[in-house]
Nucleic acid binder design. Structure first.
Lengths: 364, 364
DNA sequence: CTGTTAGCGCCTTCAG
DNA sequence: CTGAAGGCGCTAACAG
């Protein structure tokens, strides 16, 4: 394993200068046909590969973009990453992926390292409210996009799900089915922003003139065990609700397990609805519950496309910072039988295509 | 947004030479306490960040490792990636992730790009049998590890699940439950290697002196729809089997959907078993089927640790190329009721800790 | 403990 | 169409 060949080696082998080889490789200027042949041959002979590092040092572009999420293995995140990868690869960018584990410290360390690695852009689901490192990214002219969450006071685009409206729709569905006393289980304190799910929930109640009771909102640690506990609290104390709305899908398995253990029939004893889809086996899970399907892959595609545009436009943002939300799709399933039920429930799919944009219009 | 400061700017501001600053930053040589103070101050003043690209050009180390998988959003892959990230971050490496979509062409392009980007190591689940680009990686001294699949003839370590033994265990379980006629649905032609699942299946049948019939093995495209079709073929033609073994978990939802549509009772009409776990909601899916849980996160941890060792040892491989498989855990669940069943089935968890290694022993 | 010199491999600029 | 000079930001190797 000896030193790999460089531009000069190729140039010597081809009997031309290094610059001619460079121009040939990048197509940055015309090259004579004889030289072209010699160079092609030399490259093959030496198995030459351009060194992207050296090129980056010169051009200040690495062709890498960073993606920093709280939990890269959640089904939602995994799909979003796939969407981002898809668009990035098509635009000749590679992905540097980091899992912050929702830790401010780990996020900070990642931001630090990535700044040194000279990324061309960054997609971040922030776990910290700290503006300073983000401002530094922006000041260095690196396009920064928030995904799913944002940091108040930082002038960057945001792309996320339409939590509030989706939550409104789920709640409205429960109300339409006759529920009047609805409990909510949601994640303990949304990491950064106020819980828009709870807002949507309230809005739906208000619209139906149903008084709401703070006691009916339970905050829960993001674990199966704590969701199990919360569901117990709901069902064992005070008046039982008509319905329980699980505002964070990571909590669903704990709730379902409780119902299974306690022989609570869904939807006879209590209706159940879930903010996000439970995945591929969705309608095979018993009890079979109504949920909102969130466009995770599309979110990745959208955010990556916006990032590509920002990188391309030299960060001038002719259209100003944007706040974009993608609406989900309500999947209504209320069959209770074990087999023979409808394969998919009715869907309010029409809104699927809508993209909600606040601020200026989306260009392109 | 003007040019960011470099080592010389810091050196000038601190009144020392660039080398002193460099030595201070890397701790590569002692630096006087006065100089130290001046440098610290200068760095703060200028908001200096070392440029990793320039450093990489010099040191020929980027601190990046590549991970190339067929489908990065599958639950298994997502967990494996998380495991890899965990170990890498601890060792100060970043992850460049690529989704090959099982396409030879896309894989080839990724390999090409990544070679130019000068990665320090690579974890690959190959989709192509082409040895040449892989040999080039090895020849350039970049540690290469196969994950889940391998390319025959390429001298690189391999880490994967214990498909054959796990499959043996699942089949043995069905036999123990009295099944004698078992059909198998598996992915159409394993991408690269012979299907070890089918081998394990055969071995279990042979051990129980059950004759086996090629007709009972159905190859299926990796889609819900085709799995549905396959299950139909099995149930509607010839003698119905006692059991169906789904050797690729991506096919499970199609099979389950078929049973649901046709009112086939599991396990009364036909037993069902699955090669891999169905995820978090595993035991909430109806019908509730026995499956093998594969240690996806651990696989990531293991492969990353091995890679770290290879990088560290300068690719001398004192212990020779290895072939390591991590065994899964059989989750037996045969309750049929909708609620009140046992929360988890019995598990043959003892083997969980075992790591099967062929070739030399694992060091460290 | 500190500074100088000479590249790492490529591309920008300018001169043919 | 082609080449030579210089530098991107950093560090190895050698002097002090």
């Amino acid at each position: 394993m000896r030193k790999s060949p460089n531009l000069h080696d190729v140039a010597r082998e081809a009997g031309v200068s290094a610059m001619t080889v460079s121009r040939f490789l990048n197509g940055s200027a015309p090259v004579g046909s004889y030289a072209r042949q010699q160079i092609t041959r030399a490259i093959e002979n030496l198995k030459y590969r351009p060194n992207q590092i050296a090129k980056s040092l010169q051009t200040r572009k690495t062709g890498n973009i960073a993606v920093l999420l709280g939990n890269i293995s959640s089904p939602m995140s995994a799909l979003t990453i796939k969407g981002i990868e898809n668009v990035s690869f098509g635009n000749r960018y590679n992905l540097l992926i980091g899992n912050t584990e929702f830790s401010e410290e780990k996020e900070r360390r990642y931001l630090d390292i990535l700044m040194q690695k000279q990324i061309d852009g960054m997609i971040l689901a922030p776990s910290s409210k700290d503006r300073e490192p983000l401002q530094e990214i922006i000041d260095r002219g690196i396009p920064l996009l928030f995904l799913d969450r944002h940091v108040p006071g930082v002038q960057a685009d945001y792309v996320g799900f339409d939590f509030e409206n989706d939550s409104y729709n789920v709640t409205e569905h429960l109300i339409d089915r006759g529920c009047r006393t609805i409990s909510v289980i949601c994640r303990r304190a949304d990491l950064i922003n106020d819980s828009p799910q709870v807002k949507g929930f309230h809005r739906a109640l208000e619209r139906a003139s149903i008084p709401w009771d703070r006691q009916r909102i339970l905050y829960c640690h993001p674990s199966t065990e704590d969701a199990y506990r919360c569901m117990g609290e709901i069902m064992e104390s005070g008046t039982r609700p008509d319905a329980v709305y699980i505002a964070s899908n990571t909590l669903a398995s704990g709730v379902l397990r409780y119902c299974k253990d306690k022989n609570i029939l869904i939807p006879e004893d209590c209706m159940l609805a879930c903010f996000d889809s439970l995945g591929e086996f969705d309608d095979l899970i018993r009890p079979n519950l109504t949920c909102n399907e969130v466009p995770a892959f599309d979110l990745g595609v959208y955010v990556a496309e916006l990032l590509m545009r920002r990188i391309h436009d030299g960060y001038e943002r002719p259209d100003g910072p944007q706040r974009i939300t993608l609406p989900g799709k309500l999947l209504i399933r209320e069959s209770t039988g074990d087999a023979g039920g409808p394969r998919t429930g009715s869907e309010t799919g029409a809104r699927r295509q809508t993209v909600r944009v606040s601020g200026e219009a989306v260009t392109g």
